[in-house]
Design a protein around this nucleic acid. Structure first.
Lengths: 272, 272
DNA sequence: CGTGCATTTGACTACGCTCAATTCCGGTGG
DNA sequence: CCACCGGAATTGAGCGTAGTCAAATGCACG
């Protein structure tokens, strides 16, 4: 199975980070999906962040042709794109969850982000024309494909679209900078509290319960992402349970005390 | 002096991070400068990253009109733009150095980046139409101003320009993600080694000595940026001197052992 | 020439990592 | 359907890196 191959090649450090494209092409994911994405292009579920406020028919036409029938279904551990492969598309997560993993020079894996429905993945590939990370599904996940060349074309014809793409990229920059702050200046407790709050917020925005949800990732992945050892993540979670900030059962989190976590966040920070 | 005011308001936590624009406008920097930026628009010194490979006269005209006479000179500690102020322009550092500082909810300062000649600052303002950081000159610094509205207009008319802007923003994303890795997964020694190497590389690209240069920022600023205490930065620098990886004299660094530092970087990393 | 910040060094502390062992859970095959 | 296996999660013990506090020195700017 090709997807499995891709995963394995991730696990053992690969000397050449630029494998050829063909071997693990987009063919390892189901590109069929249900037909007729048309109605979701401007809807909230599919491309909420890009196309809000775009409604002229001409634009709608452009965008529909862009994403129509460009859906893909991924199973857990399927690879959406691979670090070093030629960049050609962005993807919008529709359901499920995706992690992006960077393999550094030494062969160590670093998770650069978790991406939930509405998020866009692949932006890191634009600068070098090669994906800078590998995107892996954490769950059964469906995505919309946005061929970047086509997106650029539409963007150059419709200023609104161009503007939106700029904004989306700038949002990513802000998000990453915020993460830099977190990693550089906050304690393990605060990192985890912030992480949970961000997840909670995400679910709230989608009209789901903000205080009780399922984590799509393992403790190990959380730790890797936050720069903490697995054991630290565990210990802090149990500590949080003891002081009633939340309850956990495996990957389920419930009774999240949002105010309490926020209070933790505003605790005196390392001044440095 | 208005610039000083701006600095002070940074040092003590300001409840409202969105001050009015007028009080500390762009008027606190010398916008005059020498006339005739025309010849540097496509040159290596002024806008190297944006306009490489653009040479058609039409493009040149657009770009010249964009940046001509839009230069500003900053003195040490002058504020180029202020967090929360309305975003309108990007800036290209021509000479000197700039730091971007983010003031978080708790009033703590976090340095999100140092920007040397050729770097672009202000990208973080695009997403919200307000600058997300305050940009402060570390030295006497000159910048080119790129009014963003005008840049967007040119970008929508000239696909090459649009593409370049996308790339520049994606580069920033990659840079920030790399920083996330550094902060989350590397030891203090490795962070500092990486920091020095990046500086060294920057100077080398501009045909300056790679193994001997002046740091434009204080130890404290380095520490803040790297998520380390000032004392740690000092201690590691003296340690580096003891093992002959470099020599320091105040802010001057010399005899940088680039290979040695690189070796340090590839030392086993925390697995997490 | 003095005041104040930057830098350096030392002593001590503590947060979070490592190593190790156990338990829990999910998936797989009999 | 249950037993088994392997990875995930949890908990404990001990340690090390880097932070905190404190003090001395250096340096720049007024």
């Amino acid at each position: 199975m090709q997807a499995a191959m891709a995963i394995n090649s991730l696990n053992r450090p690969h000397p050449s980070l630029i494998p050829t494209r063909s071997e693990v092409g987009r063919s390892d994911v189901d590109t069929a999906g249900k037909a007729g994405c048309g109605d979701c292009v401007l809807g909230k579920l599919c491309l909420p962040r890009i196309f809000t406020s775009l409604s002229q028919d001409s634009v709608r036409g452009h965008l529909n042709s862009l994403v129509r029938q460009n859906k893909a279904l991924l199973k857990r551990k399927d690879v959406l794109f691979h670090q070093g492969h030629e960049f050609d598309s962005l993807y919008v997560v529709r359901t499920g969850a995706i992690k992006t993993v960077m393999l550094d020079e030494n062969g160590t894996e670093h998770i650069t982000g978790f991406h939930l429905p509405g998020d866009i993945v692949g932006l890191d590939g634009i600068s070098t024309s090669r994906y800078a990370t590998t995107a892996i599904a954490l769950d059964s996940t469906s995505v919309c494909t946005l061929p970047f060349a086509a997106l650029e074309k539409v963007a150059s014809q419709v200023p609104d679209v161009q503007h939106h793409v700029f904004r989306i990229m700038a949002q990513e920059i802000q998000k990453d900078q915020h993460m830099m702050l977190t990693l550089g200046h906050r304690s393990a407790e605060q990192r985890l509290a912030g992480f949970l709050l961000r997840l909670s917020q995400h679910f709230q925005h989608r009209h789901l319960a903000a205080d009780s949800f399922r984590l799509p990732m393992s403790r190990g992945e959380i730790g890797n992402f936050l720069g903490l050892a697995v054991e630290t993540v565990c210990r802090i979670l149990t500590r949080f349970q003891k002081i009633e900030l939340l309850q956990t059962d495996g990957r389920s989190v419930s009774q999240l005390d949002i105010a309490g976590l926020k209070a933790l966040m505003s605790t005196p920070v390392r001044e440095l």
